[in-house]
């Protein structure tokens, strides 16, 4: 008897709960944001739905009294700073996480579990509390400043807090577990015979690391890079608390528009631009991966 080809029919209904959740928590909110981004700014915040593309223009231009557009780089600078900080954060996380992950992978199974647990431990504490604690460390009367003064190394150093560096420290600290975990997973997956084969074929430790271990861990690093880079783009807490609101990133720029600046449509427009950039980046990565699979899959 030939099995009857299954038509999707009513089975599709089984997906309904998931579809409902996606609709309620993703499609509708994003739709609202798109709507707001094409609306006119309300007098006391909020928005009036009168179609306009003005919010998108505002990202790049100031509107003069007579309606002429004047180029205004202030938001572009924020975008640029966000990109640079996110990229640097991703790079630092990659470099720092590899030795950590490698060290963990060398331990006994029980120790390994314990160390992985410790890596994820910060997630159990509120992000605000964790980022706030860096104020205590980096501040004028903070641990570092006091220690340096006590040692007589520095008389009166400038504040560590409220700088790009402080933001960077906060970002690396916040997101590095997201890098360590996938890198650890890829090291664990690595066949130890490949490392032995490299040594056997006259590869020194350095050669083995460079030509065998790192290339084989690249997928894990790429996954980690996306996990770190993307949330960095939208980071709010680190720039607000450690950047002191003086140096902005896109995340707190958006927050500002919805809050104090009362310019919801502009905030929405910046959100959409940020979201589109992330989507395009991820789709590009995805396509690359699919193409690579296609190339290597055929026999």
């Amino acid at each position: 008897m030939k099995p009857r080809p299954k038509s999707p029919g009513w089975n599709v209904l089984g997906l309904l709960p998931a579809q409902l959740i996606m609709l309620l928590t993703l499609i509708i909110p994003v739709g609202i944001i798109v709507l707001v981004s094409f609306s006119t700014r309300g007098p006391y915040g909020g928005f009036d739905f009168v179609f306009t593309t003005a919010p998108y223009k505002q990202i790049l231009f100031n509107e003069g009294w007579t309606g002429e557009l004047e180029f205004n780089p202030q938001y572009l600078i924020v975008v640029g700073r966000t990109l640079v900080l996110s990229l640097v954060t991703t790079a630092i996380c990659t470099v720092l996480s590899f030795p950590v992950a490698y060290f963990i992978s060398l331990q006994r199974a029980s120790v390994k579990m314990m160390l992985i647990y410790l890596v994820t431990l910060p997630f159990w504490v509120s992000m605000i509390v964790r980022v706030y604690s860096w104020i205590i460390i980096l501040g004028n009367d903070g641990v570092i400043a006091k220690a340096l003064r006590a040692l007589g190394l520095v008389d009166n150093m400038g504040s560590l807090l409220f700088t790009d560096t402080a933001m960077l420290v906060g970002l690396v600290y916040s997101y590095i577990p997201l890098m360590i975990l996938p890198v650890f997973a890829s090291i664990e997956k690595l066949d130890s015979a490949l490392v032995e084969a490299s040594h056997d074929l006259y590869g020194s430790r350095l050669t083995t690391l460079r030509r065998v271990i790192l290339p084989l861990c690249k997928p894990g690093m790429m996954a980690g890079a996306i996990l770190v880079f993307v949330p960095c783009l939208g980071a709010v807490l680190e720039p607000t608390l450690l950047g002191g609101g003086k140096t902005m990133m896109m995340g707190n720029l958006i927050q500002l528009q919805f809050g104090a600046a009362r310019n919801w449509p502009l905030g929405a427009a910046i959100s959409i631009v940020l979201m589109s950039a992330v989507l395009i980046f991820l789709m590009w990565r995805g396509l690359q991966a699919v193409r690579r699979e296609g190339r290597e899959g055929d026999v």
Binding site: E196, A197, D200, P215
Partner: peptide, 18 residues
């Protein structure tokens, strides 16, 4: 191992996949 003039054919072959 990388200073010994011996080479090994591994049971799993251990060819470098990349």
């Amino acid at each position: 191992p990388h200073r010994r003039r011996v080479n090994t054919v591994f049971q799993s072959y251990a060819l470098f996949p990349h």
